[in-house]
Nucleic acid binder design. Sequence first.
DNA 1: TCTGGGGTCCTAGGACCC
DNA 2: TCTGGGGTCCTAGGACCC
Length: 417
Amino acid sequence: MFALVDCNSFFCSCERLFRPDLAERPVIVLSNNDGCAIARTQEAKALGIKMGAPYFQIKELCQKKKVAVFSSNFSLYTNISDRVMKVLASLVPALEIYSIDEAFLDLQGLGRKSLYPLGKKFKEDVWRLTGIPVSVGIGPTKVLSKIGSKLAKRNGGVTDLSDPATHAAALEQVEVEDIWGIARAQGMKLRMLGIQNARQFRDYPNDKLIAKIFTKLGWQLQQELRGISCFPLILGHEKKKSIMCSRTFGSPVTSRQDLEEAVANYASSAAEKLRQQDSVCSFIEIFFRTSPFDSGEQYYAYDYARFQTPTLDTRRLIKSALSITRALFRHGFLYKKAGVRLNGIHNRDEYHISFFEGPDSPETETLMRLMDRINHREGPDTLLSAACGGADAAWAMNRHFKSPRYVTGLSELPKAF
DNA sequence: TCTGGGGTCCTAGGACCC
DNA sequence: TCTGGGGTCCTAGGACCC
C-alpha cells in the first residue's frame, strides 16, 4: 500500500508562507527569465491561467485581477521541500522523494481502517509544522495513489483507494491524459480505441493490443490500475546519470565573448553539481541556439567532447566547452539560449583510467573541494573562473518579481516588527 | 520586447560479431 | 536463379515526468 503526498501549488504556497496577506489572492510563479507561469494557486487557475502560459500573454489579466506574480526562487523552494520531506519521513518507515513537491510513502502492513486517519495525519502534521498544504492519495499501487491525490484536491485533501470496491467510481472521473505516464500522444491513441477515462482503460479487455500499441509502459499502467503493483518504491537517493545546466538569456547575445562567458558559467555550475554527488564525467555536451519564436534565420549549434579519463575539474570542463563554442560560433545571429550537459557519469572512485590520459591530480581534487567549500560558505560565485566574466552580464536572467531569500540569506531574513 | 529547466526510460534501427 | 540465423551494443529520437 502506498500514499502519495503532493504539495498543493507548491511554489505558490512557498511564496505565501512569508506573505500571509496573499492567502486569498491569486498567486503565480514564473519560470526562469520570467518566461511562463509554472505554478498557479486555485484562484489563479480559476482565472483561466494555464500551466506554461507565457507571461507576456497573461500580463494584462494579472494586473487587472491583482494576481501576485513571482519570479522563481528555487533556493526557497528546495529549503521548504526539505522540511516537508523531513516531517513525512518521521511518520513512516520508508519514503521515496519523487520530486521537489511529492513523495511516495510506504504504508505496508497497516490495517485498512487505519489508512484514512493516517492520511489525515500526514496532511495535518505537514500543515502544522511547515505551513504547506498537501493532498494525500492512498492506494495499492503507485498509479492508484497518484489518482487518489488528484481526486483529493476536490474532496478535503485525502482520498483512500485502498478498497478495490471504490476504484470504478474513482477511475470514471479521471481522463486518460490525467493518468500518470499517459500524456498527449498516448492519450490520443487510447481515445482512438474508444478509451476516454481510467476506468475504461483498466477494463479494456484486449491486453495484447495494449501491449503492442503502448509497449511495456502501457501494459504496466493497465496492471497498476487493476491493483497489481509494477512500480516498487525506490529507496535511497540515486545519483544523476546526466547533469544539465542551461538558460535562456535575459536579452539576446550576439558577441562571441558574451556567449563564451555564459557557457563557462553553465559548465562551472554543472561541474559543481557533479562534485556534489561525488562523481566524475567523461562527456561534455554544449549547445546554443537562436530563439525558435524568432521569425529570422535559425541556428542550432551542438557538439560534445570526450575525456579519455573521466574528470571533475571545472578548468578542464570550461576549456572543452569554450573550444566547442568557438568552433561552432557564427556571427550575425541573435542567440537566446545555451546549455551544458555532463554525461558518462561514474562514481569518483570507480572508473577506468586511460593509458593515454591520467586522472585528475590530487591537487586538482583539493583545489575543487576548496572552491566548492568557499562558495558554499560565502555564497555562490564568490570564487569563479575568469572565463565566467564579472557581474552584470548581458545575458543574465530577468527576474523582476523575485521574493527575498527568506531562509537562505542572512541579510534577507523576514522582519517580525 | 516578451515563450523554462531540469531529468528518466524505452524503442527502433544500424552496425557489427560469429 | 540464387543470398542464414543468431546475437550484442550503440545511438537517436520520442515520450513522459515534475
